[in-house]
Protein backbone atom coordinates (compact mmCIF):
# COMPACT_ATOMS: atom_id res chain seq x y z
CA UNK A 1 0.00 0.00 0.00
CA UNK A 2 2.70 2.46 1.02
CA UNK A 3 4.80 1.45 -1.98
CA UNK A 4 1.69 2.04 -4.08
CA UNK A 5 1.41 5.54 -2.61
CA UNK A 6 5.05 6.23 -3.45
CA UNK A 7 4.58 4.99 -7.01
CA UNK A 8 1.47 7.13 -7.31
CA UNK A 9 3.46 10.19 -6.19
CA UNK A 10 6.27 9.38 -8.62
CA UNK A 11 3.69 9.04 -11.37
CA UNK A 12 2.39 12.51 -10.57
CA UNK A 13 5.87 14.03 -10.78
CA UNK A 14 6.56 12.12 -13.96
CA UNK A 15 3.33 13.44 -15.45
CA UNK A 16 4.65 17.01 -15.52
CA UNK A 17 6.98 15.99 -18.32
CA UNK A 18 4.32 14.07 -20.26
CA UNK A 19 1.91 15.26 -22.92
CA UNK A 20 -1.70 16.17 -22.12
CA UNK A 21 -2.97 13.18 -24.09
CA UNK A 22 -1.52 10.94 -21.41
CA UNK A 23 -2.98 12.96 -18.55
CA UNK A 24 -6.02 10.78 -17.85
CA UNK A 25 -4.17 8.04 -16.02
CA UNK A 26 -2.16 10.37 -13.82
CA UNK A 27 -4.73 13.05 -13.15
CA UNK A 28 -7.84 10.89 -12.92
CA UNK A 29 -7.25 9.64 -9.39
CA UNK A 30 -9.32 7.22 -7.33
CA UNK A 31 -12.60 8.26 -5.66
CA UNK A 32 -11.99 9.89 -2.23
CA UNK A 33 -13.50 7.00 -0.23
CA UNK A 34 -11.32 4.45 -2.06
CA UNK A 35 -8.24 6.61 -1.46
CA UNK A 36 -9.13 6.84 2.22
CA UNK A 37 -9.45 3.06 2.47
CA UNK A 38 -6.13 2.50 0.69
CA UNK A 39 -4.22 5.19 2.55
CA UNK A 40 -4.76 3.49 5.94
CA UNK A 41 -2.77 5.36 8.57
CA UNK A 42 -1.17 7.66 5.98
CA UNK A 43 -4.21 9.80 5.12
CA UNK A 44 -2.16 13.00 5.52
CA UNK A 45 0.47 11.92 2.97
CA UNK A 46 -2.28 10.79 0.57
CA UNK A 47 -3.89 14.26 0.86
CA UNK A 48 -0.49 15.84 0.08
CA UNK A 49 -0.14 13.67 -3.02
CA UNK A 50 -3.58 14.83 -4.19
CA UNK A 51 -2.40 18.41 -3.92
CA UNK A 52 0.68 17.58 -5.97
CA UNK A 53 -1.86 16.24 -8.48
CA UNK A 54 -3.63 19.62 -8.35
CA UNK A 55 -0.38 21.42 -9.24
CA UNK A 56 0.13 19.00 -12.11
CA UNK A 57 -3.43 19.47 -13.43
CA UNK A 58 -3.18 23.25 -13.15
CA UNK A 59 0.00 23.13 -15.20
CA UNK A 60 -2.02 21.23 -17.84
CA UNK A 61 -4.75 23.91 -17.71
CA UNK A 62 -2.15 26.67 -18.16
CA UNK A 63 -0.76 24.92 -21.21
CA UNK A 64 -4.24 24.30 -22.65
CA UNK A 65 -6.19 27.52 -22.04
CA UNK A 66 -9.14 26.51 -24.28
CA UNK A 67 -11.47 23.51 -23.93
CA UNK A 68 -10.14 22.52 -20.53
CA UNK A 69 -13.38 21.86 -18.62
CA UNK A 70 -12.47 18.21 -18.02
CA UNK A 71 -9.21 19.28 -16.39
CA UNK A 72 -11.04 21.76 -14.14
CA UNK A 73 -13.36 18.92 -13.04
CA UNK A 74 -10.33 16.79 -12.24
CA UNK A 75 -8.74 19.61 -10.30
CA UNK A 76 -11.94 19.97 -8.27
CA UNK A 77 -12.06 16.19 -7.69
CA UNK A 78 -8.47 16.26 -6.39
CA UNK A 79 -9.25 19.09 -3.98
CA UNK A 80 -12.33 17.19 -2.75
CA UNK A 81 -10.27 14.03 -2.25
CA UNK A 82 -7.57 15.96 -0.36
CA UNK A 83 -10.27 17.50 1.85
CA UNK A 84 -11.88 14.11 2.51
CA UNK A 85 -8.49 12.65 3.51
CA UNK A 86 -7.34 15.61 5.61
CA UNK A 87 -10.10 18.16 6.32
CA UNK A 88 -7.73 20.30 8.46
CA UNK A 89 -5.22 20.93 5.67
CA UNK A 90 -5.01 24.69 5.04
CA UNK A 91 -3.34 24.42 1.60
CA UNK A 92 -6.46 22.70 0.20
CA UNK A 93 -8.55 25.78 0.95
CA UNK A 94 -5.89 28.25 -0.13
CA UNK A 95 -5.74 26.47 -3.51
CA UNK A 96 -9.56 26.31 -3.70
CA UNK A 97 -9.65 30.10 -3.32
CA UNK A 98 -6.62 30.81 -5.47
CA UNK A 99 -7.44 28.52 -8.39
CA UNK A 100 -11.22 28.05 -8.40
CA UNK A 101 -13.10 30.74 -6.47
CA UNK A 102 -12.66 33.60 -8.95
CA UNK A 103 -13.51 31.48 -11.96
CA UNK A 104 -17.20 31.70 -12.93
CA UNK A 105 -17.86 27.94 -12.90
CA UNK A 106 -15.73 27.32 -9.82
CA UNK A 107 -17.08 29.77 -7.23
CA UNK A 108 -19.92 27.59 -5.99
CA UNK A 109 -17.62 24.55 -5.60
CA UNK A 110 -15.05 26.70 -3.79
CA UNK A 111 -17.70 28.01 -1.37
CA UNK A 112 -18.80 24.41 -0.68
CA UNK A 113 -15.19 23.37 -0.01
CA UNK A 114 -14.60 26.36 2.27
CA UNK A 115 -17.89 25.79 4.15
CA UNK A 116 -16.90 22.18 4.84
CA UNK A 117 -13.42 23.37 5.81
CA UNK A 118 -14.96 25.88 8.21
CA UNK A 119 -16.80 23.03 9.95
CA UNK A 120 -13.52 21.08 10.36
CA UNK A 121 -11.16 23.97 11.24
CA UNK A 122 -13.17 25.21 14.20
CA UNK A 123 -10.43 27.61 15.36
CA UNK A 124 -10.11 29.40 12.02
CA UNK A 125 -12.19 32.56 11.34
CA UNK A 126 -10.77 33.11 7.85
CA UNK A 127 -12.38 30.05 6.29
CA UNK A 128 -16.08 30.93 6.93
CA UNK A 129 -15.34 34.62 6.35
CA UNK A 130 -13.86 33.97 2.91
CA UNK A 131 -16.72 31.58 2.07
CA UNK A 132 -19.23 34.26 3.16
CA UNK A 133 -17.48 36.93 1.10
CA UNK A 134 -17.51 34.72 -2.02
CA UNK A 135 -21.15 33.75 -1.49
CA UNK A 136 -22.13 37.46 -1.25
CA UNK A 137 -19.89 38.90 -3.95
CA UNK A 138 -20.02 36.21 -6.65
CA UNK A 139 -22.97 33.93 -5.91
CA UNK A 140 -25.24 36.76 -4.66
CA UNK A 141 -26.52 34.35 -2.01
CA UNK A 142 -26.79 36.77 0.91
CA UNK A 143 -28.62 34.32 3.16
CA UNK A 144 -25.72 31.88 3.01
CA UNK A 145 -23.21 34.73 3.27
CA UNK A 146 -24.91 36.00 6.44
CA UNK A 147 -24.74 32.55 8.09
CA UNK A 148 -21.06 32.12 7.16
CA UNK A 149 -20.01 35.62 8.22
CA UNK A 150 -21.84 35.39 11.56
CA UNK A 151 -19.99 32.11 12.12
CA UNK A 152 -16.66 33.72 11.20
CA UNK A 153 -16.83 36.63 13.62
CA UNK A 154 -17.74 34.34 16.51
CA UNK A 155 -14.51 32.37 16.07
CA UNK A 156 -11.60 32.99 18.45
CA UNK A 157 -9.07 35.58 17.22
CA UNK A 158 -11.47 37.06 14.63
CA UNK A 159 -9.97 40.55 14.19
CA UNK A 160 -11.98 43.81 14.47
CA UNK A 161 -11.54 44.16 10.69
CA UNK A 162 -13.64 41.02 10.15
CA UNK A 163 -16.31 42.32 12.53
CA UNK A 164 -16.37 45.68 10.72
CA UNK A 165 -16.61 44.04 7.29
CA UNK A 166 -19.37 41.67 8.41
CA UNK A 167 -21.31 44.61 9.89
CA UNK A 168 -20.90 46.57 6.63
CA UNK A 169 -22.15 43.54 4.74
CA UNK A 170 -25.31 43.37 6.87
CA UNK A 171 -25.75 47.13 6.56
CA UNK A 172 -25.57 46.94 2.76
CA UNK A 173 -27.60 43.79 2.26
CA UNK A 174 -30.26 43.96 4.97
CA UNK A 175 -30.15 47.55 6.24
CA UNK A 176 -28.76 49.28 9.38
CA UNK A 177 -31.31 47.68 11.74
CA UNK A 178 -30.09 44.18 10.86
CA UNK A 179 -26.49 45.30 11.16
CA UNK A 180 -27.05 46.77 14.66
CA UNK A 181 -28.96 43.63 15.74
CA UNK A 182 -26.08 41.50 14.49
CA UNK A 183 -23.53 43.61 16.39
CA UNK A 184 -25.55 43.46 19.63
CA UNK A 185 -25.89 39.70 19.31
CA UNK A 186 -22.17 39.44 18.64
CA UNK A 187 -21.32 41.71 21.59
CA UNK A 188 -23.14 39.39 23.99
CA UNK A 189 -21.13 36.36 22.90
CA UNK A 190 -17.73 38.09 22.70
CA UNK A 191 -14.98 38.32 25.32
CA UNK A 192 -14.80 41.68 27.14
CA UNK A 193 -11.67 42.86 25.27
CA UNK A 194 -13.53 42.81 21.96
CA UNK A 195 -16.56 44.76 23.15
CA UNK A 196 -15.04 48.28 22.89
CA UNK A 197 -14.65 47.89 19.09
CA UNK A 198 -18.19 46.59 18.74
CA UNK A 199 -19.62 49.36 20.98
CA UNK A 200 -17.88 52.00 18.86
CA UNK A 201 -19.30 50.43 15.72
CA UNK A 202 -22.84 50.33 17.17
CA UNK A 203 -22.61 54.00 18.25
CA UNK A 204 -21.33 54.96 14.80
CA UNK A 205 -24.18 53.13 13.08
CA UNK A 206 -26.84 54.58 15.40
CA UNK A 207 -25.54 58.11 14.78
CA UNK A 208 -25.59 57.47 11.03
CA UNK A 209 -29.15 56.19 11.34
CA UNK A 210 -30.26 59.30 13.27
CA UNK A 211 -28.54 61.59 10.73
CA UNK A 212 -30.28 59.77 7.89
CA UNK A 213 -33.70 60.09 9.60
CA UNK A 214 -33.18 63.84 10.52
CA UNK A 215 -30.79 65.29 7.97
Amino acid sequence: MAIGLCLYGMALFHHQRESLQQSDFFTGGLPPSAQKALAGPFAGAAADLNLLGVFSIYEGIRRQPADNNALWHKLHARLLAAQELDPWFWDVYRLAVGLMAFRKQGTSAAVDLLSKGAAARTWDWEMPFMAGYLAHEFLHDDKRAAVLMSEAVKRPNAPPLAIGLASQFFNASEGPEASIRFLRYLRASMPAEYRAVIDARITHMEQAKVKKAHP
Binding site: A2, F42, G44, W90, D91
Partner: peptide
Protein backbone atom coordinates in the same frame (compact mmCIF):
# COMPACT_ATOMS: atom_id res chain seq x y z
CA UNK B 1 12.23 18.19 -0.31
CA UNK B 2 8.54 17.27 -0.72
CA UNK B 3 7.37 19.83 1.86
CA UNK B 4 9.11 22.58 -0.15
CA UNK B 5 6.59 22.03 -2.95
CA UNK B 6 3.72 23.20 -0.74
CA UNK B 7 2.38 26.66 0.05
CA UNK B 8 1.54 27.12 3.70
CA UNK B 9 1.52 24.09 5.98
CA UNK B 10 4.98 22.91 4.98
CA UNK B 11 5.83 21.53 8.43
CA UNK B 12 2.59 19.50 8.39
CA UNK B 13 3.64 17.98 5.04
CA UNK B 14 7.11 17.31 6.43
CA UNK B 15 5.53 15.48 9.40
CA UNK B 16 3.19 13.52 7.07
CA UNK B 17 6.14 12.12 5.13
CA UNK B 18 8.22 11.59 8.27
CA UNK B 19 5.31 9.56 9.73
CA UNK B 20 5.11 7.54 6.49
CA UNK B 21 8.89 7.05 6.54
CA UNK B 22 9.10 6.08 10.23
CA UNK B 23 6.25 3.55 9.88
CA UNK B 24 7.73 2.04 6.73
Amino acid sequence: AISNLFLLETIKVELDFLWLGISL
